[in-house]
């Protein structure tokens, strides 16, 4: 059975999946999501532990942190994105992994981020996990609505065009750099505000939260869910976050089974679980 605590983690996973999906929808394999996630989480942890430790925090303060985290990660993404988005394919992936590593080492060594132990005693805006479910669920719903709109908008179609053929879309008059940078920025902002919620939910924040491992996990959300529609990473994030917990009755073998799912997923569903053909069938279906 899935309790509300696990549901929060699943929704956070879905949000991170969306953050990886955004650049990918414009044909860019960026693994920078954990870096922005870590920046958002660290910012929230620092700001909310300024007062009395373990005291409550108002929802408005959390929204303020999210706003700040959004601005900070957008600025950082702009700074990094301009030079880095000149790279393509595997080179872009490597450059973004380097960003993740730089942010991790910086958080580890900055004098005010608590070193390896991190920042703990982060105050709670909600007394029960149900509050987090509503809050993060609302964020996911808003994101879903925006993504649904995006896919039919000029920006969304430009992104799809760049993914299919960057050179051809440039010849068609699409400002490819601007479109790619916009996707990268939006991805960073989403990861940053997800980090804010995660920091409060986890009670503690340290450099391990934004590591290379997270980059791979979040990439797996998109690969297993499917990268041709925004629902793919959402469903991938929800399923892959829940799976290790749902497999607990299996005992010691649960991580072996989890690994098998990740291994066999792409073999049986090369395009991910949510494919364009599936969506088309669903759309044409008349009850």
């Amino acid at each position: 059975m899935i309790d509300n605590g696990l549901l929060v983690q699943m929704i956070l996973g879905a949000l991170l999946g969306l953050s990886v999906y955004l650049p990918m929808a414009a044909g860019q394999l960026s693994l920078a999501t954990p870096a922005f996630y870590a920046v958002g989480g660290t910012l929230a942890a620092l700001l909310s532990t300024q007062g009395n430790a373990q005291s409550a925090i108002s929802l408005w303060a959390v929204l303020g942190e999210m706003l700040l985290a959004g601005c900070l990660t957008a600025g950082l993404a702009l700074l990094v994105g301009l030079p880095v988005l000149r790279l393509r394919g595997i080179y872009l992936a490597i450059a973004t992994i380097a960003l993740v590593e730089i942010v991790r080492v910086a958080i580890l060594n900055l004098p005010f981020t608590g070193g390896a132990a991190g920042i703990f005693g982060i105050p709670q805006p909600f007394q029960k996990p149900f509050g987090y479910v509503l809050f993060s669920g609302a964020l996911l719903a808003v994101c879903g609505w925006l993504f649904q709109r995006l896919e039919a908008s000029r920006l969304g179609r430009s992104m799809a065009a760049i993914r299919d053929d960057e050179l051809a879309s440039r010849c068609m008059g699409i400002h490819t750099t601007r479109v790619k940078l916009t996707a990268f920025l939006a991805s960073a902002v989403l990861a940053g505000i997800t980090g804010v919620i995660a920091a409060h939910y986890l009670n503690t924040w340290n450099a391990r939260q934004g590591s290379f491992d997270v980059a791979i996990t979040t990439l797996a959300f998109v690969i297993l869910g499917g990268s041709r529609s925004w629902l793919g990473p959402v469903i991938g994030g929800l399923l892959l976050t829940a799976l290790p917990e749902l497999l607990r009755p299996v005992g010691d073998l649960r991580l072996v089974l989890f690994g098998l799912v990740i291994l066999l997923g792409p073999v049986f569903f090369p395009q991910g679980l949510i494919t364009p053909a599936l969506l088309e069938r669903l759309g044409r279906w008349k009850p």
Binding site: N4, L7, Q148, S229, L231, L279, G283, W285
Partner: peptide, 26 residues
């Protein structure tokens, strides 16, 4: 168009499932 409609339908189903899970796991 069919794909977008399919996307919206599936999204509604996922939202419904999440709401049910949230209610059951309270």
């Amino acid at each position: 168009v069919a794909r977008r409609r399919g996307n919206a339908r599936l999204a509604a189903a996922v939202a419904g499932a999440l709401a049910l899970l949230a209610f059951l796991g309270r």
